[in-house]
């Protein structure tokens, strides 16, 4: 039979596009052609929210998606600011069996999705034009766009920036004409890909660790034979492990390309990061508790990095 596989962030030939191609190929080969996959890249089936709707409804069977909070706001736990400060901590939490991985497993099941694992991109930061900031005071004169998802706005404001709501579709011209000074909360790949020509600085402030998720519609999953399920799961694990190994180098490569464009790449010092993390945790974590519940925040408090 033919299943549909999609990603919401990545055209054909992009790392995410290649990842779903590999996942699809491994499934077809592993099942000796019993399962065939139709591949849909970014925007081919509509916007990010639309494709996720299709996934939850079972029109898209397998997906590499960047989590949406509209069905379950507990998903926001993955955006808890300053949960990790190093790749090692993040990978430890997200790997199969890791503490965050198990937590997400249950949340996804409640949405009707089978959770396989993470497909990490790296730490995010703030891309700006004209000036940049590595501390709360310097950020006060900079106005950046934040995505309309909790707790991005709260986090970026706690970091000192002025925030603005600008639709993603209007962001390029908004930065270009100066409606806003930059884009907050993305990994450097997106700043390079979409705004590399108009931004000047990228400050890797590391407030969140951004990752896509490998998931399958639960009803479709249950219709597979145990052998087929194993093939799909193993293929997902292979894609995930490959990305765990390669993501860091990819991310560093994008930083190099960023510099090669004549832009400035800034890594805050440990003191600066520590100060930011302290301020932001104090401001945002209590709000997170209200949104996602204390029982979900407790493991985060127990496991996340100490400063």
């Amino acid at each position: 039979k033919t299943l549909k596989i999609a990603t919401d962030s990545g055209a054909k030939g992009s790392p995410a596009g290649n990842a779903i191609e590999e996942w699809a190929k491994a499934i077809t080969e592993g099942t000796n052609g019993e399962i065939d996959l139709a591949i849909y890249y970014q925007n081919e089936l509509g916007g990010q929210q639309e494709v996720f709707d299709l996934h939850v409804a079972g029109d898209v069977d397998l997906m590499l998606n960047w989590p949406m909070t509209s069905y379950d706001k507990r998903i926001a736990v993955i955006y808890t600011p300053y949960m990790f400060t190093t790749w090692e901590e993040a990978l430890e939490a997200y790997k199969p069996g890791g503490w965050l991985n198990s937590m997400l497993d249950g949340i996804y099941a409640d949405m009707g999705l089978k959770f396989f694992g993470a497909w990490p991109e790296g730490f995010n930061g703030v891309g700006t034009k004209g000036s940049y900031a590595t501390n709360v005071d310097a950020a006060k004169s900079i106005k950046v766009r934040v995505p309309p998802v909790f707790p991005f706005h709260e986090t970026i404001q706690a970091m000192g920036y002025q925030t603005a709501a600008v639709d993603w579709g209007e962001l390029y011209s908004a930065i270009q004409t100066g409606v806003v000074d930059g884009d907050a909360a993305n990994v450097i790949f997106y700043e390079l890909e979409y705004f590399g020509d108009i931004l000047d600085y990228y400050v890797r402030s590391k407030q969140q660790f951004i990752t896509g998720m490998l998931t399958m519609n639960l009803e479709e999953w249950e219709q597979l034979t145990p052998e087929q399920q194993k093939v799909v799961q193993d293929a997902a694990t292979a894609v995930m492990e490959k990305q765990f190994n390669e993501a860091r180098a990819q991310d560093e490569g994008y930083a190099e390309q960023w510099k090669a464009k004549g832009n400035t790449y800034v890594e805050p010092t440990d003191e600066e990061l520590g100060a930011l993390a302290k301020t932001v945790r104090e401001a945002v974590w209590p709000q997170m508790e209200n949104e996602v519940g204390a029982d979900l925040m407790q493991p985060i408090r127990d496991n996340s990095a100490k400063f």
Partner: peptide
């Protein structure tokens, strides 16, 4: 279907 899989408007917590 929205009753089966209820959603909210992100940023507002208003039911879809």
């Amino acid at each position: 279907w929205g009753m089966k899989r209820p959603q909210t408007v992100p940023g507002l917590s208003l039911p879809l």
